[in-house]
Amino acid sequence: MKTSREKLDLLRGTLDLLILRTLLLGPAHGHQIAKYIQRSTDDVLQVEHGSLYPALHRMERKGWLASKWESGEARRELKYYRLTARGKKQLVAEESKWEQVVSAIARVPAQVES
């Protein structure tokens, strides 16, 4: 039996998983992460930026991400996030959780009349 806390974590974990997967490709700043998720899912998933930054800071605090201010495009100082070793472990855990959700949904019979 899943507790409500676990259920909440599961929903939150979806955004975490997207961010962790994106950062697997290399360091990126917040805007790049949001755009990458949007583009790679053909605009199906649009990360609300109001959720992105709290998630990034939460994950940084947990030690899954590390950040560094670096000069990016247009000589602007940008905060780049990268995945830590702990973050990679978390990615494996989140992916396994996600697979559980997908398989659980697939087990629910669906009858759609067209």
């Binding site: 609300e48 109001g50 930054y53 709290p54 998630a55 800071h57 939460r58 605090r61």
Partner: peptide, 15 residues
């Protein structure tokens, strides 16, 4: 970006 003070508030909560 939505409501900027709200984003900041949410980030502070994450801290």
């Amino acid at each position: 970006l939505g409501n900027i003070p709200l984003v900041k508030e949410d980030v502070r909560e994450a801290w």
